[in-house]
Design a protein around this nucleic acid. Structure first.
Lengths: 217, 217
DNA sequence: TCGTTTCCTGACCGTATGGTCAGGACATAC
DNA sequence: GTATGTCCTGACCATACGGTCAGGAAACGA
């Protein structure tokens, strides 16, 4: 129609496809290796093996280990931010906060490696995403704090400190990813089932919602 | 009196003193470096510099990096366990759980490096303390779950899942250590003051206690 | 078909790291 | 004093790691 030759939307040349596919498989392997070994413990060789590519090929797509790591962290941050939208889709506090908890629990289950990389990055004083913390995250947080404070001022929930409520939600939901190994060990060595994940989500929602003066749905 | 020569309690020979003092300074430096760089990112040279000792001297006291790391993790686990006692010192649920939260918040403030090392260890699938998780931690957890369940059965608190309550307490309190950098960034780049730590502790206690059907003190 | 660009990779290199060791300093016991 | 064990350390080593590079294969455009 408008681009070059044949099908325009999903086709952009075989070369571009190759690049996209390889970057994807590398990033996926890197996410896992960084999560399981930490930045310092991860090796390009290990990532290459897990991606099924020669090490030199990694350096063709990502010049340095730092660059690859940065991409992994940035990708996670995007997922994290997208989930935050569920906060704004409902003006009712119980629905908004409940949906946010559910979204974050879902991410903990679907992206445990990413969550661990993020945790590791922050624990090491955020060497590569400090600017995101100071801009995007800070802005998002302040906005949400204001929204919650408004609910409190309107008498729609208990007068708790919104900031610490957010920290509690982050901490609790991410705990199921970051400390998943410990939780699994305390679950007879077995990963949580669908049912157990639902129970965990319900428990978290129930305690927090009740804790801020809202009844769990 | 009973031992060898002079003062017996605080004296056990200068040699023993030297050993104790050096081990202490090494462990302290190691805890910090492991926390800030991760196991893989930490180097014996860095730990030695921070301890003010030649690298070879570290290897005199701790044969390998793994051995030094293991000692750091084990020491943290002990601190962690000692705090858990506050759970049993009061039979009243509100007091017990409130005291436990306070103890854990205090540890987060006093041992942020240790908390990070612990988190990192668990995130990496607990390569060195898996046995502790399966024995000591599991036993402690099951015991506490039973105690909480008893309170619930007696109608003294809301019928929540005790296991997830414990996870929430762990997650939330440790968050203030493990994600301290993020919290500091969201606090205008400044570490929390005494007053802010108290506010955080009160918020956590308040939400959780109310969340499980108990009123915050 | 031919030139150009992208993609691929085995072999290689410099460096940093964990760990060793021989030899010396120092404290202690007799 | 002297023998013995503890403590200390500069110099050294083998290895593993991140990264480079030359040269070739494959895709593409005309």
């Amino acid at each position: 129609m408008d681009d070059s030759a044949q099908g325009s939307r999903a086709r952009a040349g075989k070369r571009t496809d190759i690049r996209r596919a390889n970057e994807r498989v590398i990033l996926q392997a890197a996410e896992r290796v960084f999560a399981e070994a930490g930045f310092g413990g991860a090796t390009m060789q290990l990532i290459a093996d897990m991606a099924g590519l020669p090490k030199a090929n990694l350096h063709y797509y990502f010049a340095t280990k730092e660059e690859l790591y940065r991409r992994v962290v940035e990708d996670i941050f995007q997922i994290w931010l997208r989930a935050a939208d569920s906060f704004d889709d409902a003006p009712d506090p119980a629905t908004a906060i409940g949906a946010y908890i559910e979204a974050k629990m879902r991410i903990s289950r679907q992206h445990p490696f990413g969550s661990k990389v993020w945790a590791s990055e922050v624990m090491h004083a955020a060497p590569v995403i400090q600017d995101y913390l100071e801009t995007t995250l800070r802005a998002w947080t302040e906005g949400r704090i204001k929204a919650i404070q408004r609910w409190i001022d309107d008498g729609r929930m208990a007068p708790i400190d919104p900031r610490h409520l957010l920290y509690m939600i982050w901490a609790t939901t991410q705990h199921y990813a970051d400390f998943g190994h410990q939780i699994e060990t305390l679950n007879a060595g077995r990963p949580l089932t669908d049912r157990q994940w639902k129970a965990a989500t319900d428990s978290v929602k129930s305690i927090i919602l009740r804790g801020i003066g809202l009844v769990a749905g």
